[in-house]
Nucleic acid binder design. Structure first.
Lengths: 243, 243
DNA sequence: ACGGAATCGATAATCGATTATTTCTTCGAT
DNA sequence: ATCGAAGAAATAATCGATTATCGATTCCGT
């Protein structure tokens, strides 16, 4: 066969990145790339909830074989980013408002406790990273001027990094993994939920969180985070006792 | 093919078994069965930590193709029951004592908070299930007479069900999923850790947990669970500053 | 016409084989 | 004899094709 496995890259919209001389980080497996791309597409909302994720179509789009896409989909299912219906394939999870509430509650249950640990244990390097992450978050525009309808990808990422960095002082990878999982579920649910943002001052809340954390006030930080998460979820609750 | 799906005698090769409603257990996909079998094998300790899980060997053993075993392995990786080394295959996770501590700490961080919610919210059905689970746990022999070296499978399962049932009153599937994940990691780590059980009265601790939960004493239950989990982890701590 | 069985097309699941990478072995130069 | 490079064997990753299953459509008996 051709010694160059160069398949015509179907990505003409990729010029913003500098071309590297050689690609040591490109040693990734195809299934890894496919997984990352599918993950981003789902998180970005490219596919509607409940929409079928057909291996054949995806394989053709990405220029890879069925096995590769299938492995990516299996992984996505494990991460909660896809549903699997036995003998009926994969689909974008159709998340109910109920589910969104459950994820939000789980975050309120877990994250304040982890933040408390983090504030008590974090070292100087952690402090520096908290400052860095907050600075980046504060300086990133929340909404993209042209898009407007949703958060910008850059802000969403800065937001995630800030919240994660706050917790990273705990030094426990298992807890951070739990956070990652909950955050992913939360972001996916939020993207499709009919939530009206209740005119909140997220900027001030984040700044207060940063200050409490760096002041080593674990109780205050945990309380602030609890309220922060509560307000996020409150934007959805129309009729609590409807069940 | 030739089989007529009429109601008279669809399956002449079926021995005179008792009439089952239908056979949904056999409708499983091969990858599902392979996943379950591999999972059990790893949790049972059939493979040593760090041992390579070779798709070819496993496929031959189970009489299925590579794709099936591969899918099972990918899923296991997502559940933390296998490690993946890029281009070097899969392996049983080699868990350090450090990791075991991290999992134990994560449980101490998460589970008491969930138990508190559960005690506050659990309904009558939950109460009944707690009693049932505790009864089963209390009446199941912890060690198998002939085996002796480890917990019996029946006790391990009853133990898991008891702890899970305690938390199920919270009514939040996301939190229960988190528990499941932590429990699995905990059990796997415990199986291979050089832990000496520090002569504890687990039976009494479980009974106290049951009583506090059914008495709706959330604070007491959470405190008991924290100590319960702390004692489990304490059996390992020989040298904290060994790093 | 209506209800249900048989058929057809689409797609999920599985398989056998090919390609690429790593690891082990061996050979050669210092 | 040792270190290192070339080659061989093993196995991971990927592919193309086959089989099984689901859903919709068509066809037939009442």
């Amino acid at each position: 066969m051709a010694s160059k496995p160069d398949r015509s890259a179907p990505l003409p919209t990729e010029p913003p990145e500098q071309l590297e001389q050689h690609e040591p980080p490109e040693k990734q497996m195809l299934s890894e790339q496919a997984h990352a791309r599918l993950r981003d597409a789902i998180m970005r909302g490219d596919h509607a909830p409940g929409e079928a994720l057909k291996p054949q179509a995806l394989a053709r789009e990405q220029g890879v074989s069925l096995a590769v896409v299938r492995e990516a989909l299996v992984r996505l299912v494990g991460e909660g980013l896809a549903d699997r219906l036995p003998n009926r394939g994969f689909a974008v999870p159709a998340l109910s408002d109920r589910r969104w509430q459950e994820v939000a509650e789980a975050r309120r249950t877990v994250e304040p406790a982890v933040l408390r640990m983090s504030v008590e244990r974090g070292d100087l390097d952690w402090e520096a990273r908290v400052r860095s992450a907050h600075h980046r978050l504060a300086r990133t525009p929340e909404y993209l001027p042209q898009e407007g309808r949703n958060y910008s990808d850059a802000w969403a990422e800065a937001h995630r990094v800030f919240h994660r960095t706050l917790l990273e002082g705990c030094g426990n990878p298992v807890l951070l993994e739990t956070f990652d999982r909950l955050w992913t579920a939360s972001e996916l649910a939020r993207r499709w939920s009919a939530h009206r943002t209740p005119e909140r001052d997220a900027v001030a809340e984040h700044r207060a969180l940063e200050e409490a954390a760096l002041a080593r006030d674990a109780d205050a930080a945990a309380a602030l985070l609890t309220r922060h998460l509560g307000r996020t979820a409150a934007g959805l609750q129309p009729d609590p006792p409807t069940d």
